[in-house]
Design a binder for these strands. Sequence first.
DNA 1: CCGTCTACGTA
DNA 2: CGTACGTAGACGGA
Length: 697
Amino acid sequence: MHFCLDVENGAEYKTHKDKEWLDLTPFNPSNQLVSVGLAQHVNGVWDDAKYFCINHSSEPSYPDGKSIIQNYLDTCTLLVGHNIKHDLKWLYSCGFTYDGKVWDTQLAEYILQRGAKKPLSLAVLAEEHDLPRKKSDLIQNYMDRRESFYNIPWEVIEEYGKADVVSTCALYDLQNVRMAESSHLIPTAKMSNDFLQVLVKMEIHGVAIDQDALDAVEDAYKERQTELDRSLHERVYQVMGDVPVNLNSPDFCSELFYSRRVVDKRRWKHLFNIGTDSRGKALKPPLLNPRQFTRIVRTNTTILKIPKVETCNVCGGVGSIDKLTRQGAPYKIPPKCAKCDGSGVILIPTSASAGLRLSPMSTVDTSAAGFRANKTTLLKLRDTAKNDFVKSFIDDFIELSAISTYLSTFVNGINKFKHDNILHTNLNQTITATGRLSSSSPNLQNMPRGFTFPVKKCFVSRFEDGSIIEADYSGLEFRMAGHLSGCPSVRRYVEEGIDPHAFTRDFINNFDSNLPSITRQEAKADTFKPLYGGSSGSPRQRAYYAGFLKEHHGVAEWHEALKKEAIRTKMVRLPTGREYVFPYATRLPNKYVNQTTQIVNYPVQGFATGDVVPCGIIATDRLFKQRGLRSLLILTVHDSIYVDTYPGEEEEVMECLNIGMLSIDEMFQEFYGINMSFPLAIEIKEGPNAFEMKEVR
DNA sequence: CCGTCTACGTA
DNA sequence: CGTACGTAGACGGA
């Protein structure tokens, strides 16, 4: 029996650090499940949606609503919904159970879009395909007034909610037709929907937070932040004089480091092609030789001077002026002095140069406010710095910037989103162009790497004497590039146990012994660059990139084949059937193929982290269930799985990870009917928290 | 108030 | 012509 389902729920506006955000989750005790709408597929058509009140301020709850819904779920074999992960989280959190399959119309639409990042809301899709519409205008006023669904009149909710179900049913019917026309996408849709059900569990489990550990790390960071802030402000005063200081401001930092002020920001942006394209990617800077670059910089900036502070001669230092209203009364808030902008002082430039006088080297160093003050640019220019004052300033500034991010994004992020010491991140399936997950609220995919980041001490087991176990695929993207391309040399590297990143490191370090050597971690970027169509860099990097494609010539040949496929079909298809569209793939007169870097990257990224890893996670989840483990899957970060391990289950959890994550061949047979016999390997770490992890043999 | 830009971090 | 992401703060135009 097939059903289509949609829930409505209460949502609370929350405040954290003066910022407001809407909490829609079932994990917030002030949010309630308000209603459930259900339509049933009978004799090939959807019946009229039934609508149940669960919790509402004025409407009595539907008599036996919960058990009626549970009875439907018990007979259901396919549950359809738009963004059904949200509905399932609510149902499970309210005690409902469901064992059948799901079909998320949003997820299916995402797969049908083939990497084109177009809107996926039910409203837009209904409009686009001329389906029965959502009735968003019914609730718009209530939403604007921030009325909770719990308080919106019941008749309105019922009409709105039923319309959502009807709209979703129609979209599902249409998708059946479109999927039949592109039947190679069906296995990906089915796998993704199975994966969705594991993700629901992961999000509900969440990560347990040790608040004391988090507070301790926060205190340590804040102490260091205060010290760096004080010391940097002192030094800024020496080189800038008595000016307003904001080390978070790109505008101020540009002037501080480069001693120049942009005359006309609009013209500056135009000159250096600063901005983002329709997909949010940075535009390419213009090609200028050093002479042209220097000339443009000189003619469009003024040199900054240390100002002398004088009392404002208009307001006499008060900052406001004695102006009366038309009625002759004084203003409640006296108008600001226009001359000094309310500061009471005016700054007269002297002949002394201000700032740290770094010289930008090229267009890549420019930004909208002038010049970039990020880690890479500053480290690059640090070598050209005239004295130790500048060098140590740069070091301390870089450390402060990092600590500020750690505190504002990560420490605050955890505190902002956790519910009762459990952090339920969102694992989003329909965001990326490639098919991998994204993570939000908070983003747990961009935490600094484990052993470098003490904040991870707060990620602990919820079980007394429990532990955190993490398993990740070794060199997955490199291996899958080898599988997809059939490159014999990549396969040989894997079979002979050659570490590709160590190889890269040694190649680059042996190229010229006079240059500083790089670490294995740093070499990773160089391994991936040629794999994803990159070729520019320093002489030793370029030599390595050329060497990579010569060594792994199968990869180079595959890149050419992919480009041809993209030009011919405007599409690239993976062995799993997943597709990506490249509508502008053409060969330009200079032989370069538009969108090359995406054409060669998407298949590897998508296959490895969008097809292989989800299959490994589904398999691991099945093993946990079969063995009745109490340990919980709690997170995945692209090529890794985290488990909150129940004490005593450590060995069995590691066994499940080993079997599950390495059963891709079987999983691919099941979902896609294809072989994936390329050798895979995983590494397993265990610890009392996500910081103190030790590799387990 | 909202979009753009910069910066931080990850695989 | 490495790719893919999310979040916070500053800024600037409505």
